[in-house]
């Protein structure tokens, strides 16, 4: 494959996963809301913060439609508009889908026809149905459908795509993004329900979030087979048999790196992250320490992205010289 396609195919994987994960995040938080007691007020703007936006300025700039209903005037609606329907919002599902399509176009020659068609159908579905964030029930169904269609693309690709460098890079993109998103979802859990404290953190058992991640059954399996005292944090960070755990994602990135010219650099970075996970005494951490660990992992994931795409840039310079 061409050197310049490295970036596009990697981003194709990232954006596809981001679509799926954003849909899951929306549903996870909606469920969290349903589980909450009336007196715990869910703070919607925090969702924008974990997606990397500044919630206060983002919401301050938000323009209500002139004929807004009371529901549409809510903070929840504004946040959901940013996450789902607002094309100008860099984290919205619609925007992400446009980026996905752009990258697919750039590397169309690497993509099997069947996958190209699935991507087209995904794009037309999203552009048609994600124009409004909708009410809660409608939103739930819509997000489930977005997620399902993303899975269709992956399934088709897995069945027909050549096992080439492009396949490896696409999968690395998916797993880097997924690890990143799982840390973001954990951030919501930690930030939402607790003020950072110095004392040992309490146990997290958010079945709603695990449900949205598709991992509730395997979580119960995990609990039943662990001798030590563990919770959802341990599970999401270290249980490598669960395909949305951070540990699993890192393993997949390492496996996909084989055969690439810069695989050594990638493996080194993955190894560093794995060491970080293993070294942390998870159950002993205070909430603050846990928060800081998640920050460290996120920084490491950004580094990993650089390592995967940067040698390409370096080689490009060398070739043009």
């Amino acid at each position: 494959m061409l050197l310049k396609s490295v970036d596009n195919i990697f981003w194709l994987g990232r954006y596809l996963e981001r679509l799926d994960d954003t849909a899951r995040l929306v549903n996870a938080t909606s469920h969290l809301l349903i589980d909450s007691h009336k007196d715990t007020r869910f703070s919607w703007p925090i969702l924008l913060d974990v997606m990397g936006l500044d919630s206060s300025s983002t919401l301050a700039d938000y323009q209500l439609p002139p004929d807004a209903t009371p529901e549409q005037a809510s903070i929840e609606y504004a946040v959901m508009a940013h996450l789902i329907s607002n094309n100008a919002s860099s984290v919205s599902i619609r925007h992400t889908c446009s980026q996905l399509k752009y990258n697919a176009r750039s590397v169309r020659q690497l993509i099997p026809r069947d996958m190209w068609e699935e991507l087209n159908m995904l794009d037309s579905f999203i552009q048609q149905h994600c124009q409004q964030p909708g009410g809660r029930q409608q939103r739930y169904n819509l997000m489930t459908e977005v997620s399902r269609r993303c899975q269709m693309v992956v399934g088709v690709l897995d069945g027909v795509m050549l096992r080439s460098d492009a396949f490896g890079l696409f999968n690395m993109g998916r797993h880097v993004e997924r690890a990143d998103m799982t840390t973001r979802i954990m951030d919501v859990m930690v930030l939402q329900q607790l003020q950072p404290t110095q004392i040992k953190r309490p146990k997290f058992r958010w079945t709603s979030i695990l449900n949205a991640l598709g991992g509730i059954e395997s979580y119960h399996y995990y609990l039943a087979h662990q001798s030590s005292d563990v919770d959802a944090i341990d599970y999401l960070l270290t249980f490598a048999d669960f395909p949305r755990s951070i540990a699993y994602c890192f393993n997949r990135v390492a496996a996909s790196a084989k055969g690439l010219p810069h695989s050594i650099n990638i493996l080194q970075q993955v190894h560093q992250l794995q060491t970080l996970l293993k070294a942390a005494p998870l159950s002993e951490l205070s909430t603050e320490q846990l928060h800081s660990l998640i920050d460290q992992i996120q920084a490491g994931i950004m580094q990993l992205h650089q390592v995967i795409t940067e040698p390409a840039a370096a080689q490009q310079q060398q070739l043009s010289a």
Binding site: M1, L2, L3, K4, S5, V6, D165, L260, P261, A312, Q315, Q316, L319, S320
Partner: peptide
């Protein structure tokens, strides 16, 4: 003429 590929020219 060379092509810039992932594994070199």
């Amino acid at each position: 003429v060379y092509l810039k590929k992932l594994h070199g020219k």
